[in-house]
Design a protein around this nucleic acid. Sequence first.
DNA 1: ATTCGTGATCTGTGATCTCAATTTATTTTA
DNA 2: TAAAATAAATTGAGATCACAGATCACGAAT
Lengths: 248, 248
Amino acid sequence: MKADLGQIDSTTIQSQVYQRLREALFTGDLTPGESLTIRNLATVLGTSPMPVREALQRLVAERALVQMPNRTFRVTPFTPDMFRELMRVRMTVEGLAADQAARRMTATGLRKLTQLNAAMIRGIENSDPAQVMTANRNFHFTLYEIAEMPQLLDIINGLWLRAGPYLTNAHRKLVDPLPFFRAGTLFHERIITACQSQAPKAAATAMACDIWHSARRFRRDVDLINTPEPEPAPKRPRGRPKKSEKPT
Amino acid sequence: MKADLGQIDSTTIQSQVYQRLREALFTGDLTPGESLTIRNLATVLGTSPMPVREALQRLVAERALVQMPNRTFRVTPFTPDMFRELMRVRMTVEGLAADQAARRMTATGLRKLTQLNAAMIRGIENSDPAQVMTANRNFHFTLYEIAEMPQLLDIINGLWLRAGPYLTNAHRKLVDPLPFFRAGTLFHERIITACQSQAPKAAATAMACDIWHSARRFRRDVDLINTPEPEPAPKRPRGRPKKSEKPT
DNA sequence: ATTCGTGATCTGTGATCTCAATTTATTTTA
DNA sequence: TAAAATAAATTGAGATCACAGATCACGAAT
């Protein structure tokens, strides 16, 4: 029996929808303030409303989406306070992850992190911000996985999910992002060096500096950049149709 | 119009189910490893399966429940690694909350915290562990709310939700819990003093010590206490009924 | 005696429908 | 003319059903 029958995808539809929406949030395809409806998404994704509804509710529970008083779903708007808080919490939480990763670091882990930072540097040389940001994200999560703290990783995933739409949008609007990205790779090198030396506190400090550098860079821009994209006009808003819209 | 028509409860059924399950987890009515089914809970709570399903899935997303390979829901089992991790993360995260609360502390806040710690002391004098634990929880969350960091509070809520079933169970099994609880109130006094003195780092340290004291107290017991309660025999397990069970 | 196949049952998932709340525009009333 | 009432539409929530996967017991086949 040589035929490759392939794998059957037994992932539930709802978790596929959830992952699709997560990615859209990370990549900035969904922007803060943007409205989502169950039926529209179900149509776009080719499913019934149920799995969409459940995915949306999960994202609400994770605060990546909010539900308005009229019950519609929106991508969580971004405020200066929220920005400050997320960055402050990230410094502490991701600092802890870096500290614990340094305590558990292996040669394989160091090699991997070095490769990922090199990939980020290549993205800078290629003037390709998307490559840079993917490599940055991979660097961070590879490091945090080395810490082997699944509950903490879950918390960090939630923080990135919330900050994701804003940060993706903010990076896109940088006129010249390359010096900013270059500084990021230097912090990564500090983290790698600290891990190599089994210096957990230095790793945590370098991580906090990486995040702080980000926070400081975007601090003054948060009100301007945060302006939600103009809401695409809903095809047919709620309410009674106008006489002019009625078919003859 | 003098008649008091009362308020209409517009909370969705699903969020009522969710809150009910949360409370059951906190109070230990639901224990680690315990199995839950949608239809059974819906019958017990007098709802259709839908809101129960959505509440359960939210709790899975929050890792308070897990879904087994055969898709049934269970309260997340507790392991020594999970215990260590949760406590380590709590020291850091709740330390940050205490630090930020100290920076924002008001006279009203101090008074409130003092009263809550006094309530805890009264519970100790009354030899009433449930009163002690409620007061302890109220103390912590009042402090964290003063920090005015909603994202961080959300993270802490998630941590307590996961640790809740275990800690409730563990406290219940203490032969003489009073000295342990008394030490807790002393840490709370240190936190209050640090907040009064506008000493955020001292507040964070006292909080970490409070949690560390808990962690150390239960560290050796975690394997014994963690043993899941014997699963109540399901009324009618999956599979074909035995001949002996068939009606004549 | 062991293994395999079949049927019965439970379980969660997804589909579909109905309902209630919200929103908007038009019509009616004063 | 302004305010109130009515109508029409969207939206999520809840109910219900069907389905597929998992599990168990029993009978048939070897």
